[in-house]
């Protein structure tokens, strides 16, 4: 306990401390993807002696909006405050009509991406993506898509696929489930035509031959599953996760954080985390990351609107 007290004191006395003591906001409850990202990164920072300590604050709920609002309001100008976030937040902000949004925080770096997979139950007559597309074009209502929450990554991918093959995204018959797990039962039981979720979520079922993977959303072939692009559907979608800094920090402070995170991603500890969780590293720092987010907000916003969700 004394150590903590001293640390806090030294924080006030020496703002230019070589190893910063970070405060990390994780806008989700412990255990999920954001929590694993944040804690994995913090462990990497510590293993590389890049940060002297990291204090976590988990504040879950509403696709991260609650944590985001708190971060925006309470950490203004704090060069040592960071927050985990990702694509799910982009949709959540739009659907939840949130008063705060991602333009109010400072983009630091994109870290990981999880690709999405399109599956059918083993007994389904649909064998290939082309057959699915044909069915979709004939009668979009007859193809029910089971996946995660409305307006989430899975729903967005269904919309993007439809639009790419020339079907009105608003005609997609998407049936939201509480998450990949609940959707698995609906897919295996044949209650929906197609299933969409993160690659890892369905991996066991695909391996066991209970589901057939038709395509996945990375740029190229992955685990023997052809990508959408390879099959002539121009869609690429990764459920990305990244790090943000506090609102109103100086460019120097931001660059320091970008460097800190970049160094952390080069540690063996971080690589081991990625390996263990099966995440693809897609590092993108500073301004590039900022531009990427702007693009993504536009893309997600447009597709959510065309899905008929934004009221």
């Amino acid at each position: 306990m004394k150590k903590f007290a001293l640390l806090l004191l030294s924080l006030f006395a020496l703002p230019a401390l070589a190893q910063p003591s970070l405060k990390m906001m994780i806008p989700a409850n412990p255990g999920g993807g954001w929590d694993q990202t944040g804690r994995g990164l913090a462990a990497a920072m510590q293993s590389g002696k890049l940060a002297s300590s990291v204090q976590f604050e988990n504040k879950g709920g509403a696709a991260g909006i609650i944590g985001l609002a708190q971060f925006v309001n309470s950490s203004k100008g704090d060069p040592n405050a960071v927050m985990v976030g990702g694509m799910v937040m982009v949709g959540g902000i739009i659907l939840g009509k949130s008063a705060v949004n991602l333009s109010q925080v400072t983009p630091i770096a994109r870290l990981t991406s999880e690709w999405e997979v399109v599956v059918v139950p083993a007994a389904s007559p649909i064998k290939t993506m082309a057959e699915l597309v044909k069915l979709l074009k004939e009668n979009p209502g007859k193809v029910s898509w089971g996946g995660g929450s409305a307006g989430g990554t899975d729903h967005i991918l269904a919309g993007l696929i439809a639009r790419a093959v020339g079907v009105d995204a608003a005609k997609v018959n998407y049936v939201p489930y509480k998450g990949g797990g609940e959707a698995i039962a609906a897919i295996l039981g044949g209650h929906v035509t197609v299933g969409i979720s993160g690659v890892g979520e369905f991996a066991e079922q695909v391996k066991a031959g209970k589901m057939r993977a038709l395509a996945q959303s990375s740029p190229s072939k992955l685990d023997g599953i052809p990508s959408l692009k390879e099959q002539g559907i121009d869609v690429e979608l990764g459920n990305w996760r990244g790090i943000f800094g506090a609102p109103g920090i100086t460019p120097q402070q931001r660059d320091a954080l970008v460097k800190l995170v970049k160094d952390a991603t080069e540690t063996p500890a971080w690589k081991a985390t990625l390996e263990k969780l099966g995440w693809t590293p897609v590092f993108l720092g500073g301004d590039d990351y900022g531009r990427f987010i702007e693009e993504d907000i536009k893309r997600v916003g447009a597709i959510i609107e065309s899905l008929g969700l934004k009221k």
Partner: peptide, 9 residues
């Protein structure tokens, strides 16, 4: 809360 089927608050 958020309507699970449409995302409508």
């Amino acid at each position: 809360g958020i309507d699970s089927q449409t995302g409508q608050p």
